[in-house]
Design a binder for these strands. Structure first.
Lengths: 173, 173
DNA sequence: CAGGATAGTACGAAAATCGTAATATTCAAG
DNA sequence: CTTGAATATTACGATTTTCGTACTATCCTG
């Protein structure tokens, strides 16, 4: 996702929801994990998720942004020039809900609306300087959690965790 | 956290919030990760989190449980006999908010209240059979996401990811 | 230009969260 | 035993958030 997405080009087309498919048993090149392995990872990740939430709560206490507004702000920061529909589709909320969220963020001077000349139906969203600072604060919570994770590993394991995380994140499906 | 927590013993005492401490530079046995490593992991985990959210949304569409109610149900399922205050402290919401959430879940017959004889101020919560089924469905979404993660790795990497995840989850701090 | 599609907003209803106050119960002195 | 503080929860009302429907404005296509 490059910054400065051109308006008119849709970031998240309507049908692009990644549907979780059932574990059908067709043979692939990769080895299917065992049920026990899946359970182990599920349990471990539940604790990760909880730790992330703590970071979220701490960040929210600072600038009084609710979860949707914070996620919206981060998305707009990553995708300057995007429209309200783009954010709504990405975060899977109703268009009107996103419109309200944008209202709140504009009122707090964290993002700004602009009418592009080439398509005057849409609005182009952009984080303000104040908004970018707020994003930094918000992301800092996540970064803190990630740092804590890495701290409990020794150097070789740290590198390995990063490598595996990127491999998973970059994999299709 | 053992199942069947005895009432009167508090699961989450008031002061027990794990405060995220600043990255002060005191020397430890473990190697402090570099800023770049932290950033890499943060980026990768942002995508993990998003994938988990998709699973959440899919599960929510089925039985029409909002995020708080779902988390509440899972917690009660893991901690039968717990009280409303326990859940409220764990999920960091106001007592009255949790009371409302419990109301909704009781109305849907997913959990049940009971007045323990030894402390008749409190209520003991427990998931019903229907509730346990709903938990299974909810957890299945998470499991599905974990399975997808493991699928993009080869067998050795799968084992290593599980090992590292457990090491981090089991580490103090 | 007409008709339809697209992007967003206005408005009102429904739902959720939360703070304050009230109720019921337990506990600890005196 | 009684009084008063502490604890666990609920009742109630205010505020905020989400969302569906209807509406406006603009673009596109023939």
């Amino acid at each position: 996702m490059q910054p400065g997405c051109s308006p008119g080009m849709r970031l998240f087309p309507r049908g692009a929801v990644l549907a979780p498919e059932e574990p059908t048993c067709f043979a692939t090149a990769m080895t299917e994990p065992t049920q026990e392995q899946v359970e182990q990872l599920t349990r471990a990740f539940a604790r990760f998720t909880r730790r992330f939430k703590v970071a979220d709560a701490a960040a929210a206490a600072d600038n009084a942004l609710n979860a949707l507004d914070a996620e919206t702000l981060v998305f707009v920061g990553d995708n300057p020039g995007c429209g309200i529909g783009d954010v709504a589709r990405y975060l899977k909320v109703a268009m009107t809900t996103m419109s309200s969220a944008i209202d709140r963020l504009v009122k707090k001077e964290l993002i700004e609306r602009r009418r592009p000349e080439d398509d005057r139906r849409s609005v182009a969203l952009k984080a303000t300087a104040k908004g970018r600072r707020a994003i930094q604060d918000h992301v800092a919570g996540y970064r803190q959690a990630c740092r804590a994770m890495l701290r409990s590993l020794d150097p070789g394991e740290q590198r390995e965790l990063i490598r595996l995380s990127e491999k998973i994140a970059d994999s299709e499906t």
